[in-house]
Design a protein around this nucleic acid. Structure first.
Lengths: 120, 120
DNA sequence: CAGTATCCCGCGAGATACTG
DNA sequence: CAGTATCTCGCGGGATACTG
């Protein structure tokens, strides 16, 4: 009886792929991580965030914040007893879970930049 | 690979962000990881890959393969002494470097899916 | 300040056809 | 088989203006 050695089990890889795609779907947008990192840096208010994330429009920022909130990565808090109402977007406890992911991406991105510039 | 240079403070975080964006830029496309994983799974020929990556057109696959090759993640090999010439896209040695990234994304994606489905 | 409403344009990408 | 060439269309997203 012979056994075929595969690079990796197809189904395991497929499952892994689908999870990977989910992650990319949530985190891989053009603005998503920029915004997330602005908030992690303590910039919690709409216009403050917009100032930090250069080039983003109010319309797109609004949509992105809703998406991040739906994914439980940020929490929208309205402080009603303020002169003009204050809205704060705060990192959630759960948002800590993406730190390793950001770390991993960041490390690879850094070495990759070197790799590419060396190759040209 | 790059676009805008930020003139902001917190340079360490900005550098990290920029590396993260570079990684997202390379890996975050709609098809990129699907294709990469198909190749890692041993599907090396154009039409074979296209069959594995459901929904992708030849035009887009062609462009994506060029991008992956430019990023040194795959190698294009032409086997000239075959009746109709055979072209193979093989994983590069360097492509091993993205495994931790895929792993990290995959793990977060899996737990996130559970997190989200529990919250609805 | 914290957004929403329109208008509008470019390009990402699907469909289809064609070539060496 | 391994792509390239058009043609087309939707929508992501920028610009601008407006509101509570």
């Amino acid at each position: 009886m012979e056994e075929i050695i595969e690079p990796m089990s197809e189904e395991r890889c497929t499952r892994s792929l689908s999870s990977t795609e989910d992650a990319i779907y949530v985190l891989g947008g053009k603005w998503t991580l920029r915004i997330m990192i602005a908030i992690l840096n303590g910039h919690t208010r709409f216009n403050d965030i917009q100032r930090r994330v250069l080039g983003i429009s109010a319309r797109v920022l609004s949509a992105e914040l809703k998406k991040l909130e739906l994914n439980l990565l940020i929490e929208r808090n309205v402080i009603v007893d303020a002169k003009p109402v204050i809205v704060e977007y705060n990192q959630s406890e759960y948002s800590r879970s993406i730190r390793p992911v950001i770390q991993s991406l960041s490390e690879w991105g850094a070495t990759h930049k070197i790799k590419i510039s060396n190759s040209h």
